[in-house]
Design a protein around this nucleic acid. Structure first.
Length: 286
DNA sequence: CGCGAAACCTGACTGC
DNA sequence: TGCAGTCAGGTTTCGC
């Protein structure tokens, strides 16, 4: 589920219902995520007001203010491979792998009033995490060495060209390295490389700045489009419905190994790169 | 240092 | 029906 567009969609879906609300209760049903959920999380978080929700790469950052002393800390959530954050009606049956439940109430209500929503962290594979950060968050080890946001000005041909010099790694691995740029997962790495006609196994260090210009633009466009389409799932977070496959119908290569290239009709090739499915057109991508 | 591979998990699916 | 094997949207850590 969570490529960057889905994380951003989650952020946009949660924000209007969470911001200004108070965390009235925290229940940790399974603390064994990618990193253990801090034992003190419930104590730390209970009673805080959610100020805003940011995203850095695929991390969601919920800024939470202590009502009594004004202290602000951040709940940092990563959805891993299989995670989701959903708002449900309080009292909804808890599903297997709903590991954390945050009860949200109106800020005017008492702590023991009925919560308005329950925010549930669901993650079957438990590759995600839920951590507590002190400000400033950029100093945190998981965030400090991340590359630029793909939709920011800092992500351009110059950045990719400079960083790639001397690298023998395949361009697809380079593009998926969060130290190079955040948020480009397996699906969109495949798609972006197809769009600009670059062979996924080509050495990153041997690619021209002109081609990086096309590639950075393609990454930006694809992610922006996917976020736009993800917007249609916003309502579903509140309604508790499953997500529609907003990206699936638009994919040119991912999941289409053996099927004809949309551009030249030659059957698409699939290879494994670091155990990740890599699909490309051997004719269009060089 | 840089790279590929292993590791962390569960569930869905395939083939015998 | 069951069981073994493979694969899945991510990212850190290990080992060469």
């Amino acid at each position: 589920m969570p490529e960057l567009p889905e994380v951003e969609t989650t952020r946009q879906g949660l924000a209007p219902h969470c911001i200004g609300r108070r965390v009235s209760e925290v229940a940790v049903h399974n603390a064994r995520l990618r990193w253990p959920v801090p034992e003190s999380l419930a104590d730390t978080l209970t009673g805080r007001l959610i100020q805003r929700i940011d995203r850095r790469g695929k991390y969601l950052l919920l800024y939470c203010e202590h009502e009594a002393n004004g202290h602000v800390g951040v709940l940092m959530v990563h959805l891993g491979m299989s995670g989701s954050l959903r708002l449900v009606e309080p009292g909804t049956d808890r599903k297997t792998h709903d590991h954390l439940v945050f009860s949200l109430s109106d800020r005017e209500d008492d702590l023991d009033a009925e919560p308005q929503w329950e925010l549930r962290y669901h993650d079957p594979r438990r590759f995600g995490c839920c951590l507590w950060l002190e400000l400033p968050v950029e100093q945190h080890p998981l965030l400090v060495s991340l590359g630029p946001e793909p939709l920011s000005e800092a992500f351009d041909d110059q950045h990719l060209f400079r960083l790639s010099r001397g690298k023998s790694a395949p361009i697809k691995s380079f593009l998926m390295d969060s130290h190079v740029v955040v948020g480009v997962g397996n699906i969109y790495a495949n798609e972006a490389l197809f769009r600009v006609g670059i062979h996924p196994l080509r050495e990153a260090g041997g690619i021209s700045q002109a081609r990086y210009k096309a590639l950075s633009a393609a990454v930006r466009e694809i992610l922006a489009q996917a976020i736009e389409r993800g917007g249609t799932t916003l309502r579903d977070f509140v309604n508790g419905k499953g997500e529609p496959g907003y990206f699936q119908q638009e994919l040119s290569v991912y999941g289409r190994a053996g099927e004809p290239c949309v551009r030249c009709n030659k059957p698409l090739t699939e290879v494994r790169l670091s155990a990740r499915s890599t699909v490309f057109c051997a004719r269009c991508q060089r």
